[in-house]
Design a protein around this nucleic acid. Structure first.
Lengths: 110, 110
DNA sequence: GGAATAACTTACTTTTTTGTAAGTGCAATC
DNA sequence: GATTGCACTTACAAAAAAGTAAGTTATTCC
């Protein structure tokens, strides 16, 4: 088997840099069906600390994956949602979630 | 928008538990075209320490994702490859790598 | 007007992950 | 028989990620 140029390496690493860590994929998962308030996300992701949620959202925002919208009429209402670009992540999310589900079933059987 | 049961949460977390971290997806990426020796992987993944490579391979082995085969005829030849079960990860790997590639292009343009 | 809720921020600690560097045993090659 | 390459192992250190807890500002709700 010939030694391929390690080209894919940089691509996988790029993804990891943007989506890696304990929380980001989880946050994105819960945004995939539409905008969520900060407090909603907190409830949807058991165990996450407010600081972590904030921090990760800020990073996703700066990477232009997530939008932050403040509603001026009803103050202290902030919603996070995918940017159009961010939606390109959904095809990554799905197989990943599916695999987790299948793997869970498997280890339950064993 | 109704608050979904946070079911996907556990699935995403399961995947993260098995495939998370700096190196595992990268290692698997380089196994997707067939078996590789320890020394080959070391070359294919620039910057990885031997200790890390060993450690991650051991974990993938214990999770039954990767096979370790020792060739007795030619000693000190050890090959790592996907188990049949491990191959189920390939559909996760591809979109992830594709997204990284697209994202790289995007940030180069910006 | 007092309490509660929302969306944060900050200082600090702990834990986890990753890295460094040196060393082992064994076989093949010079 | 000395050196080299391979597949590891170990002790230790550094860095990165995550967590805790308290506080801030402003706004509804009673």
């Amino acid at each position: 088997m010939p030694m391929e140029q390690p080209e894919g390496t940089i691509f996988v690493q790029t993804t990891l840099k943007i989506l890696g860590g304990k929380w980001k994929l989880l946050i994105l998962w819960h945004l995939k069906d539409g905008a969520r308030r900060f407090s909603e996300l907190k409830k949807l992701i058991p165990g996450i600390a407010e600081k972590m949620l904030m921090q990760q959202l800020r990073e996703l925002e700066k990477d232009e994956i997530v939008n932050r919208s403040v509603y001026k009429d009803v103050t202290s209402r902030v919603e996070y949602s995918f940017t159009d670009y961010g939606k390109s992540i959904i095809p990554v999310l799905k197989p990943l979630c599916d695999w987790g589900q299948a793997h869970l079933k498997r280890i339950e059987r064993l």
